[in-house]
Design a protein around this nucleic acid. Sequence first.
DNA 1: CCGTATCCGACACGATACTG
DNA 2: CAGTATCGTGTCGGATACGG
Lengths: 137, 137
Amino acid sequence: MPSTVQKKPRQQTPPSVQLLSCAPHVVLTHLGDKWTILVVLLLARAPENRLRFSEIKRGVQGISQRMLTLTLRMLERNGLVLRHYYSEVPPRVEYELSAMGKSMLYPLEVFTGWIGENWQAMQQARERYDAREDRTP
Amino acid sequence: MPSTVQKKPRQQTPPSVQLLSCAPHVVLTHLGDKWTILVVLLLARAPENRLRFSEIKRGVQGISQRMLTLTLRMLERNGLVLRHYYSEVPPRVEYELSAMGKSMLYPLEVFTGWIGENWQAMQQARERYDAREDRTP
DNA sequence: CCGTATCCGACACGATACTG
DNA sequence: CAGTATCGTGTCGGATACGG
């Protein structure tokens, strides 16, 4: 591939700001998966931000055991959640938001707050869009 | 089920607490997909929050034409982006953040700000986690 | 230039079954 | 109770080609 970076074949808009799929964006992508946020929000409401596996399972409507395990592993791996294992019979495991996990709650609330204020408008926009017929090519 | 109060350091979770995969969460899931946030952030930086299709394509590293189209359609459908079509030859299309789209920028910055301050810590947590051998069952 | 159509592989996710 | 293991499927997203 010949490098033509030095040449400006045509005058084009501002010197291209380029966004890479950087680490922060990857984080956001992970948090945006199907269950992570719901689990975090549930822990946020819990006393001491701490719940048993089965409590989370009951609290997050529709999550499978497999996906809950994977979600919690991911959160633990990223240091957002602490895993406390008690080798009793039957075993008991509790999950707790770490300090970093708790520090995420405010930004998360700001965002979910915005969504709460705007999702009806989005809903309406969708309906308007879908009703349109004069879609331009 | 006998109610035992002893050795229960904390109270049980109220059974009423249940999180559904509600509309706000769905929104967050959409925004958390592979490209949406990057496109929004690029528009946020642009003069008048407005760019041509090809400018966005160049600005978002690695995005395919197909995915950019789909991403922009989704943003337009949800009312976050406005599409301006000019039937010239060759045609020109510009995309602009709507008022609602702009109103998202602050919440987004709060969130990306938090990520910016914490993603190294997450990285380290991951490395620590992966290096561990004493994983509890 | 700005899309749409089609094919296809990868993987996220669910269902189920089985252990310590 | 709190996980693993395994398998099947739907969807996401990349590559490519074509069209207005």
